[in-house]
Nucleic acid binder design. Structure first.
Lengths: 335, 335
DNA sequence: AAATCTGTTGTAAACGATTGCAACGTATGC
DNA sequence: GCATACGTTGCAATCGTTTACAACAGATTT
């Protein structure tokens, strides 16, 4: 009793019943009589029995966990999403495994590995650069895309990126800007493309020029925001306001601009995307588009659980609204 | 073959050998003859067989994953640590489960749950507020503390918090400060206490006064840094420099001070702790003490793996050095 | 030529739970 | 009083591996 861990057999012996009864007492208490139920629970208490999840999982043909595949675990953007996921998964008795796609050599191979390894009942994939063909595979678990997407037919939970871009442009226009630039995410990234499309569409609505030289390339990182700032500062005919595809880049941009002696928003207005924690404490606090990260995690988990219990590889998609967060990094353009 | 997933039986049948041979081919290829090995691998290929980890784990009496218990999953501080852990765990064929302690009702109960649930081969615990007594339990898996600690006898990987504080104070003194305050972490938090001890000791070495009214309470959050700033600004006889137990608080402090029209470092010098990504892009870039977060994760994982394979509940502890990061948030005190 | 060893393979018993099916006792319907 | 139904329990198969042990063939030793 003290050396080893008690098994269901031990409990059955102590309670004087069969293992079947013990199992039922624990999973469907209603079908056993109150007296035996009490006896079993007593025996459980005495032996300190804890159900062996591995054995249970084997018999029930499941694993009891889902895995979140993010492009880069070190990216803090995901932590709050994971927290949201964790809360609902735990509630459902599921564990949350995490792994990143970009750490090994072949990201696709990594996805394939988790699909076939049978180590999770379902996947939530945050990386839109993977090949959808990898999913063409018999007997794979359900997969839900989150934030990014690789094939619009896959079930997903995303935010309305285009609407976010529109909100940003609308605000800049409202403040009097007509020379508006865009700092993009990595080449081909679906989020950056969607935001750029929203940006372009919004410019058209306001009858503003879309100038190729006012589109700066970035990769979502602060450093790339800094690089964009240098390019911006080197121009003479430059935008008076910039919409950044991520808060990180906005932070890098603002930092670089300020270090060069310019002021935000007096010399240039900046608007970000994401609403990461820190930006409200900056000087000036950053105007941005908020993504409800906790909610994204919660919905993703809920939807995946739905797919798992339905045993279905397909499911609905959901688009979550973004929110405009007015702060102080946007002002009227310099006269 | 297409509908269901192939089992080891299927492979054995196709290869014309026993399941034992298949298993051996996959785990210890050296003991099977080259010819049968080839036949088996061929059959594996044909059937698309993937080992069922659940069954394997049950038989081998392990789970194949370790769990990281953090106080708050939403805290980005951990993401880089998790990334480091993930990289070495994956290498070792282990999955990384994450969960937070502070989300449910009873944090201790949460730890207890994971100890007995048998869902992980080992735990890495980042929360020093739990009770060490929870670990007094037969048959529990190995536990390694990381960053924080609850009982110095437990194996752990931590950083040299006191040395960090000393580095900070030394630098401030060197710049000419003699009126130095401290913004603490949450009441009783081991990290905050250790840093405060280092702080106090360093003041003594430099023969500087330790004034109770120059110690501000915080909880590591940016908001609490903001609150501290308000208290600081309300004082007339106040420190000219502040050492913050976390970068977050330093950010909150600096932001609040700047919004009030004061300047850093002209009006007040600030030094943080952690070296989170963003602080180098602030205006001014924050001087801080760097914790090598990736390395912490890597070492924690390595050490836990060591304990797991040794089947030992005890193990060595390791203290990792911190590094002083001079930037621009510290300057000479106002004359 | 018998005995021993080595290398390779198969047999079958675990690992610890869940669950379809059968069996039992008792209550109900006719 | 007999048949049927219901509520409760046990038997035993099953999930898919791993591995101790036995078995066997061929090589080597005595």
């Amino acid at each position: 009793m003290d050396g080893k861990i008690a098994t269901i057999q031990d409990v059955a012996r102590v309670a004087g019943v069969s293992t079947a009864t013990v199992s039922r007492t624990l999973s469907k208490p209603s079908v056993v009589s109150p007296t035996t139920r009490a006896a079993v629970l007593d025996a459980v208490e005495q032996t300190g029995y804890r159900i062996n999840t591995t054995a249970s999982n084997l018999r029930r043909q499941r694993t009891g966990s889902v895995i979140a595949l993010v492009p880069n675990l070190a990216n803090p953007f995901f932590s709050q999403i994971l927290a949201g996921m964790s809360s609902v998964l735990t509630e459902a008795g599921l564990g949350l495994l995490v792994a990143d796609t970009q750490s090994g050599t072949d990201p696709d191979e990594r996805l394939r590995h988790f699909l076939v390894s049978g180590v999770a009942d379902g996947l939530i994939v945050f990386d839109g650069t993977l090949s959808p063909q990898v999913l063409d595979m018999p007997g794979r678990p359900p997969v839900l895309m989150a934030c990014e997407w690789m094939d619009r037919n896959l079930p997903s939970v995303t935010v309305d990126n285009q609407a976010g871009a529109r909100l940003a442009v609308d605000h800049l226009v409202q403040e009097g800007h007509s020379r508006i630039g865009y700092i993009a995410g990595p080449e081909g990234n679906v989020l950056s493309v969607a935001r750029q499309q929203g940006f372009t569409a919004a410019l058209q609505i306001h009858d503003l020029p879309l100038r190729a030289d006012w589109q700066y390339e970035g990769d979502y990182s602060m450093d790339s925001g800094m690089v964009a700032a240098r390019r911006w500062m080197a121009m003479t005919d430059r935008p008076t306001a910039l919409f950044c595809a991520s808060d990180e880049m906005a932070v890098g941009f603002v930092g670089a601009v300020q270090r060069a002696g310019l002021r935000v928003p007096d010399d240039v207005s900046v608007i970000g995307f994401d609403n990461i924690e820190v930006v409200q404490h900056l000087t000036p606090p950053l105007t941005t588009i908020r993504q409800p990260r906790n909610q994204i995690g919660v919905r993703a988990a809920e939807m995946l659980i739905e797919m798992i219990s339905a045993g279905s590889l397909s499911g609905p998609s959901e688009v979550i609204d973004v929110e405009f967060m007015p702060r102080s990094s946007v002002g009227p353009p310099r006269a």
